[in-house]
Design a protein around this nucleic acid. Structure first.
Lengths: 208, 208
DNA sequence: AAGTTTCGATACAGCGAAGTCTCGGAAAGG
DNA sequence: CCTTTCCGAGACTTCGCTGTATCGAAACTT
């Protein structure tokens, strides 16, 4: 009978610890400095690993970052407060608290911009950073629709853009320094609820 | 009698043509490749100018870019169609048409991210790229408020974020490839007008 | 004409980072 | 024991870029 790992090659096997250390260091530095700002030597140093150990696993820096990002399944804990408004407040509270420095708060734009020259890297960034967050919002919105809080004929993808877009934009143009992000997110939500046109006469009193 | 430029120094005067060529080439390359991607040698080549001619005017690359950006007074022509909706369509149409490549359509995020390490550069980018566009939207909104199209008690700055944010965000996460930007901008506007909550009973029929 | 400064062009120094290679040693199989 | 592969550490090569220096020619003042 053939053993499961039949073609086990001789010699010292690759260190799983080194694998983990490399990925962890890469993700840390990626969050801190972005793709351009990440140097393989810095990864080497933080991982406590030889440079050859990195290049034995990944052909180049881009492959290293791609692989590291795929190990990042941003596990976003979904709040369930009963109202979309409070759910959003909770989500933004957590998201903001998780990003201590201004540089980290513009991580998403920075990484997307960095990866614009590498199709595969851009796709990875998009799926791990963007889509995971959109999934979370999508779930909150679906619940809100079921509760009748949000109109069912509104494209959820558009609503996600309306909720996330102004926040990302604001972080970007303020360089990550947004004083009261939760308050701002709520102001956005309230404006979306109220609409931007003058208050409609709910009793229909004819004017003039 | 003393000539107006009394302290005119001897020697060959600096070439105004070189000034203009350097600024023009810098702006072109900045739009094409961003701050990081701009090399002084490329500016030299495109401007048809000696490298010393550049460094005689600007101490370093950052100063060069700062100065070039300050020469960019994005003259945005304000449409006046009579409705905010059509004004927005016109503005986005022009903005999109002016950016032929996907790379240019994410110019704003890219430059802001590039400049995050340089306070002064960030400020220049912000005033020339961000504030000039916000000024335009601000004017359109003010007119709409006067017409009664938009509620007067809504913070105009927030409304700008609501209009521009989702578009910038969408350009960013789609890598500049947005199929129908004007249609999207209008969908955003329509959602803002309608509100995101289920249609309110305009006749106020008591339920149950 | 003499002196001074800028011109375009290019060579050169310096630096940081990517990727390769070498070293002595360690962990596996035969 | 012997071979093979991997290990951490770091030297090394290569490359692209910033910023400086040098060159002969041109433009301008005195």
């Amino acid at each position: 009978m053939s053993s499961p790992a039949a073609s086990r090659s001789p010699g010292r096997p690759r260190s799983a610890e080194a694998d983990a250390a490399i990925v962890a260091a890469t993700l840390e530095l990626l969050v801190e400095a972005g793709f351009q700002g990440l140097s393989v030597d810095a990864v080497r140093q933080r991982a406590g690993v030889g440079k050859a150990t990195i290049y034995r696993r990944f052909p180049d820096k881009t492959a290293l970052v791609r692989a590291a990002m795929e190990h990042l399944h941003a596990q976003i804990e979904l709040p369930d407060t009963g109202t979309l408004r409070e759910d959003l407040a909770a989500v933004w509270q957590v998201a903001y608290a998780a990003q201590p420095s201004a540089s980290q708060r513009v991580m998403l734009p920075r990484l997307l911009v960095d990866a614009m020259n590498d199709e595969a890297l851009f796709a990875v960034f998009r799926s791990t950073l963007v889509e995971s967050r959109r999934d979370a919002l999508r779930a909150l919105i679906a619940r809100a629709v079921q509760r009748g809080e949000v109109r069912a004929d509104l494209d959820p993808e558009l609503l996600i853009d309306l909720l996330a877009g102004p926040m990302v934009y604001r972080f970007l143009i303020d360089g990550g320094d947004v004083p009261d992000p939760v308050g701002r997110a709520l102001a956005i939500y309230d404006a979306l609820v109220a609409g931007i046109t003058p208050a409609r006469p709910s009793r229909g009193r004819p004017r003039g």
